[in-house]
Lab assay of single mutants.
Amino acid sequence: EDDHHMEFCRVCKDGGELLCCDTCPSSYHIHCLNPPLPEIPNGEWLCPRCTCP
């Protein structure tokens, strides 16, 4: 699979289990988001950068 997502968290710059945005290459740990997510959501997810007006 050709995955163009970042291999590190945009916030802390560390790797591991990352949540990938469905519209851009950004990846995040769920605990690095503000507010943090309790678990990885099902379905499409947009990062804070893509949901800002």
Rank of each mutant, 00 (worst) to 15 (best):
H31C: 11
L19N: 09
P35L: 04
C21Y: 01
C24Y: 02
W45Q: 03
P36D: 05
H29E: 01
C24S: 01
C12T: 01
I40E: 14
M6C: 07
R10A: 07
G43P: 05
H5P: 09
L18K: 03
E17M: 09
I40T: 12
L19G: 04
R10W: 15
S27M: 08
G16P: 00
T23L: 07
H29A: 01
Y28R: 04
G15C: 03
H4S: 04
S26W: 09
N34T: 12
G15W: 05
C47S: 03
V11A: 05
D3Q: 15
L46W: 06
E7I: 04
L19T: 13
P48H: 05
R49W: 08
P38Y: 07
S26L: 10
S26F: 11
C24G: 00
H29I: 01
L33Q: 03
V11M: 12
G15R: 10
L37Q: 08
L37S: 07
C12K: 03
N34W: 04
D3H: 14
N42S: 10
L37G: 04
H31D: 07
F8P: 04
N42G: 13
C9V: 00
I30S: 12
S27A: 14
R49N: 13
T51E: 14
F8N: 11
C21N: 01
S27E: 04
E44K: 14
T23A: 09
C20P: 14
H4C: 13
N42I: 09
P36Q: 12
E1V: 11
R10C: 12
G16N: 07
R10P: 06
I30A: 12
R10S: 06
P25Y: 06
Y28V: 04
N34A: 10
W45L: 03
G16Q: 03
R10E: 10
P25T: 10
L18R: 04
I40V: 14
C21W: 00
T23G: 14
L19A: 14
N42H: 09
E39C: 07
L33T: 05
H31V: 10
P48T: 06
N42L: 10
D2W: 05
H31E: 11
Y28M: 02
P36E: 05
D14C: 07
P41R: 08
C32F: 00
S26G: 13
C47W: 01
S26T: 09
C50D: 02
P48M: 05
R10Y: 12
C20K: 14
L46H: 10
C50I: 00
